[in-house]
Amino acid sequence: MTAPVSPAVPVASIPGVDDALQARVADGMTAVAARMLEVVDHHDPFIAEASGHLAAAGGKRFRPLLTLLASEVGSGWNDRVVDAAVGVELTHLASLYHDDVMDEADLRRGVDSANARYGNATAILIGDLLFGTASSVVAGLGAEAVRIQAETFVRLCAGQIRDDRQTLDAAPASAALAGDADDPAAVTAYLQILADKTGALIATSARYGAMFGGCDAATVRTLTDYAERLGVVFQLADDLLDVASQADTSGKTPGTDLREGKATLPVLYARTSTDPADARLLELTRGPIEDPDDLAEALELLRGHRAMGQARAHAARVADEARVLLDGLDPTPAVDALRALVDGVAERSV
């Protein structure tokens, strides 16, 4: 049997959630956790244990929560909404197995990463297995759901490929990925990576919830657009936390992006500086940082740089765009909760 899937994140973590809505969504999250335990199980004990490793470690369960909340804008969650939530969460978990191999990360959710625990080859294969499991669950929701899952998977992979190829080299192959942060092309290219590698799956989470929760087509489109922007804010917050957090509080290895030489938004803003005092920071962030002492120095310098404030302000602007989209929906407790969710995600970057 697989390791037990940890309890879902309490809906009370979203400030101001209506009590009745909170109870319904909490029940839905319990149903999602039970269904995940069922579909991740495997007759081979090792495969079962490895497949459930990250699920058992917990996590925010942000995507299934969003699926359930979006369904509540319509008629509420049901078995199809639960399966949709399981499908997006398994797709997310599968991507984490692959991400940790690419990042050579040691920690994920406060425990050993899958690659550290099982080795790179097994971690990749377990990720593939979970992608297959997600597809099997989604297949039960019909051809349209399968098409959406496939398109989402393509965007996720394309965004991850572009992100992986992005470096801070002084003369990269793609100027659009490395230019001045004041250059609209550079920021646009960076935000498109985030929209693809993170926003696409979060958008699909809300889209599925709205679809299978009985929302009309216009509401489905609005919630999909809202959630893609929410996903960009979510990733911007993660990128800021990669600089600002400590391993003992975040459960992740800080400085992963800097170590790999990825041009996240704080670094793009830092690279616009002409202040001689920033010369050392610019030198350190020209490419991958292999020396642990150099990485610690780069983190310290970037944490104190105004570029962090500029990146946080950018995240706040995208969060505002998400909130404005919700203004077109009838006010309900579910819409209020979705608006509060934007606030909670944005505050992670503060």
Rank of each mutant, 00 (worst) to 15 (best):
L54I: 03
D242Y: 03
D99Q: 02
R286I: 08
N120V: 14
L240P: 02
S71K: 01
L301N: 01
V232Q: 05
R117P: 07
D343K: 00
L54G: 06
A217S: 07
G87A: 15
G16A: 08
D196N: 12
A346W: 02
S273L: 08
D79P: 09
L338W: 02
V267I: 12
V233W: 01
T256L: 12
V318E: 07
S136M: 11
T198N: 03
D128Q: 00
S174Q: 11
A114K: 03
T272F: 14
A296Q: 08
G28P: 09
G16N: 09
I161S: 12
T272N: 05
E260R: 10
V342C: 05
H98D: 05
G255L: 04
L268D: 02
A114L: 00
D238E: 02
D257A: 12
A319C: 07
P288T: 00
L258P: 10
L295T: 01
I14T: 13
F153G: 14
L90Y: 12
D278C: 06
E144H: 12
D163Q: 06
L223M: 00
L338G: 08
A48F: 12
I193E: 00
H92M: 03
L90R: 00
D320W: 15
V39I: 06
D291E: 14
L329G: 06
T253N: 12
R155Y: 09
G76Q: 05
S71Y: 08
L236T: 03
G231F: 09
R162G: 13
A319V: 15
A277C: 08
L341S: 10
T219Q: 01
D180H: 05
A50C: 09
A195Q: 09
S71M: 00
M36V: 10
